[in-house]
Design a binder for these strands. Structure first.
Lengths: 231, 231
DNA sequence: GCAAAAGTGTTGAACGTACACCCATGG
DNA sequence: CCATGGGTGTACGTTCAACACTTTTGC
């Protein structure tokens, strides 16, 4: 804030936010995209997003967008990166602050999402996307991979109650490689952050797998005292 | 980019960038700040920064600012975070994209910096700063700590030729704790990324310490094949 | 009774951590 | 000759990675 000698209208710029929304459904990591409603590129696939309004912060704008499309509040949402190349958008000079979100897909939300013209795509089946959105997605995926080993964010993509094999499949689809089931379970349980329930999920096997909940309160306490979750 | 039905002038916003500039001088980690030249808060201490112009990206704006104040180009500069609270700046609605920079302080640059009204402060002797700049600094320091264990960015703060004890003192001042010199040296040399020179630095001891250079080319190659530098 | 997924332990290798002494030299 | 910082090695504990079999139950 130095070179200009006063606040000036001259340098006002359009500011948008775009959300890279990850969901995990039927053992597959998916992304939410929709058909763009404004020119240029009207009708093409785009990330969900909005211009940032005068009276809201960037985070508020992103949460507003997420609410409009999914009906969800209090979701995991984190800033990814600013995209500000001068000619990234042929429609106008516009910078975009990309944010990535992790949500729990369930059937109710799925309906609502599709009512809003949005659609879930598996990562390897994404259509072409407008502007630099493909680039945002690959940056977001990289960030997700970096973060998911160091912070317990995987749980944001699963239902409150989940089984250990489910969680393992999620991590396998984030990192695109098989993990050893004994080592995965051992490491995970060693944190002592999962609460084992007296319920089993029998949708994927006859034996059934025990359901667990993530003990977020305990994690927050441990985190403050320097503990780090590393899978 | 969904809820507006056209690109509109209404949501244009002032966009600034502020730079958190770290330097390492006389064994002390320092930050570059300057006296703000515009109202409100004219004359108070501030990070260096500028509004982002219509015809430049945010990164270009930050590099322009860095060049103006230090005369340096090709420095380490990375996006930190967007600060966009609606009332973060009483002068106007303005979002700021904070970036942190690591530079090699040398005596020539020191002069130039001070000619521009900027000043280096040790981290624990920072004056009060305008707006949310204190907050940017503490976020930047946290980021520096996270990054310096996983990426070889410490070298950005040292001269091309440096000794291992110098590097250790740098890491000790970033993390604010003593490190074991044998373990530090062993780990560091195990990467085989330092080139030992046939020169010694005798400014800090009679015996003298060998100078090294960081082999950045080799690092870039290793990085591509999945190697990770973890101190 | 069998197919299909859930759950369980051990061992060797690699790595991290703690720790104490000799070396080279300028004054 | 001595004070000062530079440089070196070992032993122990922890963690990681690789690996195969038993359990449960719906069909």
């Amino acid at each position: 804030m130095v070179t200009k000698n006063s606040y000036t209208e001259n340098s006002k710029i359009l500011v948008a936010t775009d959300c890279i929304v990850f969901g995990f459904d039927e053992g597959i990591l998916k992304l939410l995209v929709f058909k763009r409603r404004i020119a240029p590129f009207k009708g093409e696939w785009s990330l969900i997003g909005s211009f940032v309004k005068e009276e809201e912060s960037v985070t508020e704008a992103a949460r507003r967008v997420m609410y409009q499309f999914t009906g969800l509040e209090n979701i995991f949402l984190e800033e990814l990166k600013v995209y500000s190349d001068v000619d990234r958008d042929p429609g106008a000079r516009c910078i975009s602050i990309a944010q990535y979100a992790l949500i729990r897909i369930n059937d109710y939300d799925k309906g609502q999402v599709e009512d809003h013209g949005a659609k879930w795509f598996a990562l390897d089946q994404l259509p072409d996307l407008v502007l630099d959105h493909k680039c945002m997605i690959s940056d977001a995926l990289e960030r997700l991979r970096e973060t998911a080993i160091r912070k317990p964010i995987g749980f944001e993509l699963l239902p409150e109650k989940f089984t250990i094999p489910q969680l393992q499949i999620l991590y396998e689809s984030i990192y695109q490689r098989k993990l050893d089931d004994r080592n995965f379970r051992k490491k995970l349980l060693s944190f002592d952050l999962l609460i084992k329930l007296n319920e089993k999920d029998r949708t994927t096997s006859k034996k059934g797998a025990f359901l667990y909940r993530f003990d977020n309160k305990k994690y927050k306490k441990l985190e403050k005292s320097g503990f780090s979750f590393v899978l």
